[in-house]
């Protein structure tokens, strides 16, 4: 494992912790898109189908359990917890799941490395992860007040994807036959979706003003 991959995973972990901190400690999910969180739960459920049958390393198994567990508990908190659900901005979080899930499923059925259930589901999870942030970005744009933790959460998620690209570049030059077009193209698209957010995030940081995305 190289430093970019580890930094990427740690940034991903940090994003989840920031979100759990907001939800668990402050008992608020204001500005957080339930749609995006449900899509992430679906991403991990379809990607880690082999968690108990295909062992890679202790590190991988533990991280997979953390991402699965946190994704489902975040969804549970927003839907079921009596205090947290009150802060959920339902009226602005209107992105429809099937606009995202259906095209990803069709694409996975058409473009994959091997036509088996597990590989198609794995490919579906890559396509879905690439666009799962869209409901969250739409919600941020509609929310006039982006609080600090929500801003940090989205920034950490974007940083995680950017670090994974550096990891692929590193692995491409250091490992023989390391080519994964499907992973790379969907990962690149996923990272590009954050470009706009990054721009305004750094602007607000540089000018020391509150983060706000233009309508």
């Amino acid at each position: 494992m190289n430093i970019f991959r580890l930094a990427g995973d740690m940034t991903h972990l940090a994003s989840v912790l920031v979100l759990l901190l907001k939800i668990h400690t402050i008992k608020s999910c204001a500005g957080i898109s339930l749609k995006t969180q449900e899509l992430y739960a679906l991403v991990f459920a379809s990607r880690y189908l082999d968690i108990f049958t295909h062992y890679v390393s202790f590190y991988n198994t533990v991280m997979k359990l953390i991402f699965l567990g946190s994704a489902f508990s975040i969804v549970w908190y927003i839907r079921r917890h009596k205090l947290v659900r009150r802060s959920y901005d339902k009226d602005h979080d209107t992105f429809r799941h099937y606009f995202i899930v259906l095209p990803c499923l069709i694409l996975a059925l058409l473009i994959h490395e091997k036509f088996t259930f597990r590989v198609v589901m794995w490919t579906f999870s890559l396509y879905l992860e690439a666009v799962a942030i869209l409901p969250q970005l739409v919600l941020l744009q509609r929310t006039r007040n982006i609080d600090n933790l929500t801003g940090q959460y989205v920034f950490l998620l974007g940083a995680y994807r950017a670090l994974y690209i550096l990891n692929w570049v590193y692995r491409y030059f250091t490992e023989p036959h390391y080519v994964h077009w499907i992973t790379w193209i969907s990962g690149l698209i996923q990272t590009l979706l954050y470009a706009d957010f990054f721009y305004y995030y750094f602007q607000s940081w540089k000018n020391n003003v509150k983060l706000e995305l233009p309508a």
Partner: peptide, 10 residues
């Protein structure tokens, strides 16, 4: 060619 399931990334 490496099987995608043996992909070691998260």
């Amino acid at each position: 060619k490496e099987h995608p399931q043996s992909h070691d990334e998260l």
